[in-house]
Design a protein around this nucleic acid. Structure first.
Lengths: 193, 193, 193, 193
DNA sequence: TATGAATGAGCCTTCATTCAT
DNA sequence: CATGAATGAAGGCTCATTCAT
């Protein structure tokens, strides 16, 4: 009687990836839904119980989503940081302003769920966190004389907060040019050597 | 513990105030608890049902708590803004850095529950919101030549985010001097005319 | 502080009457509301607690409402029954068909709340109940040869049910002429001697 | 009493049936209980939450119970109506008087909960409703000359009400012979051609 | 007598998680 | 591995009733 039409047999990695993909779609559109495991597995086209095969709890999924997004976002930056030659870190920061706002706005409601969550910790030193990346950029900028002498970790925290605020404001309907412009003015006056 | 044998009959205003006070105590120490109405009324020494006499839902209480905190915090600033004589708005902002961080750290877990909540909206124009206040300060500063020409609303949003980040960091164990110092450096370079 | 604008001091009977009036208004329009004591006292313009001064419980109010309605409705019938001279009881029953349907339709939602309620018992012998009245009419009709020999109590029960059904149907939008006509046909063939 | 140590996993249809069965038992004996979901699931030997897996609300269960009872009761009638040959519809109605009273009395308190409920609507045309069935019987009877020319829908409504009243009276301790006899007299005189 | 703030038992419902199949 | 029926702890909220004023 209970004949599941197709018991899609995937490799664990594929299944896991599908769940994360589904979660990203759900979070982007609805934010954190009620009945989280059900909503995500329905979106992924699997059974409710499958959720717990791959993630002991919702928070574990959130961490996985966070890591995925950060990896995607930070790939070009990590590449840049891997290069040892001096670079124009001021320009890099300027570029990140737009890129970060675009990224955040594109995330829709996902952003609040994943990044404002107290669940996903962001230790300053973690190179996979947003502030971790900014911190490394600023450190390089300071070392290479492209930026004013500031405390890289603290500056990264402040900058990230400001970026965040701008992105949220734009996502909420604020004027993109105005926010990004002000942000550029802020970083310019603050971090120029 | 306290078993008041008799009903304490209070005026609605007093009871409401007691409930808000109790909620602030609870939020400060535990953050948002499970069984919210029960926890708050127990702290207030009243019956569970009394909660719903005064607040149709938890969110209504949160709004009341938010308003109370903002009113308390903003009282001196509103006074300053009421005065028409020119003032040293740079110094005011510098002072707010410390005052805001102190305030936020003193809020403990309350802060996240009330201010990160999507429940309590903070329209830019609202003079009772934190950004609304900052915006008015910055506007005055710009008008009176104490601050660089910036977009007051946007600048307030960015500044508030940075203040917030610093306060959160200090609350989480960060070095207060370092964060406030960096913040002062940021505002100094950014907003000095 | 708590100064009730006017503490209307009425004689207990007036107060009681006002509450019953208010209950009838409420029941007619909303049927049995949620928060019954509150709804009725609000309609009556008194305080919630006053309800319990006059009625130990909702059911007691229902009984009072029932008695009031029945007294009003049955007044002409009781008068007729008091007269000892023989009467055309067939015509009386025919007339009651329309009067009862009018009455019931006019009651709106009140009807279901008060008369379908298991709370208000209607002992067959009770001359204040609808079936009690019908029973006495039928008994007189049988005794005076105006009606076929039937069991008065049982016939009253069946007739009342049929009247009720017709009234409910008309209240629900059924065709009045059709229902009353069929009812007249029923009683005619059934009860004619 | 029964503590099933292990989860009883059934097909949805079986579980649903068990819940409806349990509900019928409960309603028959207690009428509509307080804590409805708990009472029914306890009777069914399942966990409270299981109720909501099968019925979004109590009213949905009531509808299911109603349908089940009507299907059971009406099965022989539907069969009769399916046959095209003329039948003695007077005798059928006479038979239904006893059968309906038996059925209703056997329902105990269930009857009021399910059939007096405003939740379960009974449109006149619905062949699964009691009046719908009676209506079809009367229509056939009229067409085949076994019954007087009456409006089938209206007559069905009136007849059903009378049947109901008799059944309720018998259930409440009334004399079965008296009520059924009077009912037979009523239908005889009313509907004989 | 009248008031309306206060009470708390109790019902409804959700949903994270388990586990028999 | 995958499934989805089953679970039950937990929280939200209502409202009949009480009682201090």
């Amino acid at each position: 009687m209970n004949r599941p039409r197709t018991r899609r047999r995937l490799s664990p990695d594929e299944r896991r990836t599908e769940l994360i993909d589904a979660a990203i779609r759900v979070l982007r559109e609805q934010g954190e839904p009620a009945n989280r495991a059900v909503t995500v597995t329905a979106e992924a086209g699997t059974a409710k119980g499958t959720f717990y095969v791959y993630f002991p709890s919702w928070e574990d999924l959130l961490v996985a989503v966070h890591d995925r997004l950060m990896d995607d976002y930070s790939a070009p930056l990590r590449e840049r940081l891997a290069a040892e030659a001096p670079q124009d870190w001021r320009a890099v920061l300027d570029g990140e302003i737009d890129r970060f706002v675009d990224f955040t706005v594109g995330c829709g409601k996902l952003h609040g769920a994943v990044f404002h969550s107290s669940v996903v910790p962001a230790p300053a030193g973690d190179e996979h966190s947003a502030t971790g990346l900014l911190s490394r950029i600023i450190r390089r900028g300071v070392e290479e004389g492209a930026l004013r002498q500031v405390d890289p970790d603290v500056a990264a925290g402040l900058l990230f907060a400001a970026l965040h605020a701008a992105a949220d404001a734009v996502a909420a309907g604020g004027d993109r040019t105005r926010w990004c412009g002000s942000l550029r003015e802020l970083t310019g006056n603050w971090l120029a050597p």
